[in-house]
């Protein structure tokens, strides 16, 4: 459904990524891997429209979305940035309700229906008990879940996340990944930048490797993402172990020194 064609992007005139091509189907979980500063966030921001591409096109169902207004884009793609907070002490239910902004007519406020959708998004993530809490006072994990609830309330077809498990403890990482998996099973496409190759091995239907301004697309990373790809990607000597668990072939990267 999402097709990125011959895309060059960066800040100003300077290309950070060149000639990026890949396609994403609905329900895919796409993991973007790459070292710090390789351009993962740039790619993400360009897809969302926060940075204008220098060349190339982004198509959804064959149509270019580059000139779509923010409202229309928001109904297609929701975005969960790397870090987020709010200067003002909004309540969780209001933050989730803000996910409905793209459906509101100009100069109107959310309706009862919008409130219902927001509440259901909270219920779906089992965080209804947080709804009257102050968002900026929540823990990192709770805030991350609230942002996902906001994205669900936005009812977009694609959720793009910049390092969703960053700053989360192990338990919260698992909760987060479980919810993302649920979303993808319901037909929502997840595109996420991540630092853990295991995400690609375990859940990814596709991996995008970002290095030296180029992006390589790897289908079914659990089979096709090889040890040497990762060695090259991160410029380190790493060991990939494979084992069998419940008839699943599991791959893990070991940080051996």
């Amino acid at each position: 459904m999402l097709e990125v064609k011959a895309l060059s992007c960066g800040y100003g005139e300077e290309n950070i990524l060149e000639d990026v091509n890949f396609t994403v189907d609905s329900g895919d979980i796409v993991c973007i891997l790459g070292s710090n500063g390789s351009g993962k966030s740039t790619l993400i921001k360009t897809i969302i429209g926060l940075i204008k591409p220098i060349k190339g096109d982004i198509l959804v169902e064959g149509k270019s979305i580059l000139n779509w207004p923010w409202k229309r884009r928001a109904q297609l793609i929701s975005y969960i940035p790397q870090s987020f907070n709010s200067t003002f002490q909004y309540r969780v239910k209001d933050i989730v309700l803000m996910g409905r902004t793209s459906y509101l007519k100009f100069a109107s406020t959310p309706s009862k229906e919008d409130e219902r959708i927001a509440e259901e998004a909270l219920e779906l993530l089992r965080i209804s008990h947080l709804k009257d809490k102050i968002y900026s006072q929540l823990s990192g994990g709770e805030r991350q879940l609230v942002k996902i609830a906001q994205a669900l309330a936005q009812q977009s077809k694609i959720i793009i996340m910049d390092e969703p498990t960053n700053n989360l403890d192990f338990g919260n990482q698992m909760v987060m990944l479980k919810h993302l998996k649920n979303c993808s099973e319901k037909g929502i496409t997840i595109i996420m930048a991540t630092h853990l190759p295991e995400h690609a091995f375990l859940y990814g239907s596709k991996a995008l490797l970002v290095k030296n301004g180029r992006v390589a697309e790897i289908e079914k990373p659990s089979e096709n993402l090889k040890e040497r790809d990762l060695r090259e990607l991160y410029d380190v000597d790493l060991e990939l172990v494979e084992f069998n668990l419940d008839n699943r072939n599991i791959k893990m990267c070991l940080p051996l020194i």
């Binding site: 921001k45 969302i48 429209g49 926060l50 207004p69 923010w70 409202k71 229309r72 884009r73 928001a74 109904q75 793609i77 929701s78 975005y79 940035p81 987020f84 803000m98 996910g99 902004t101 793209s102 906001q150 936005q154």
Partner: peptide, 10 residues
């Protein structure tokens, strides 16, 4: 960035 991605023409 959040405001824009929520659909607001900031």
């Amino acid at each position: 960035d959040e405001a824009r991605s929520l659909g607001l023409d900031t």
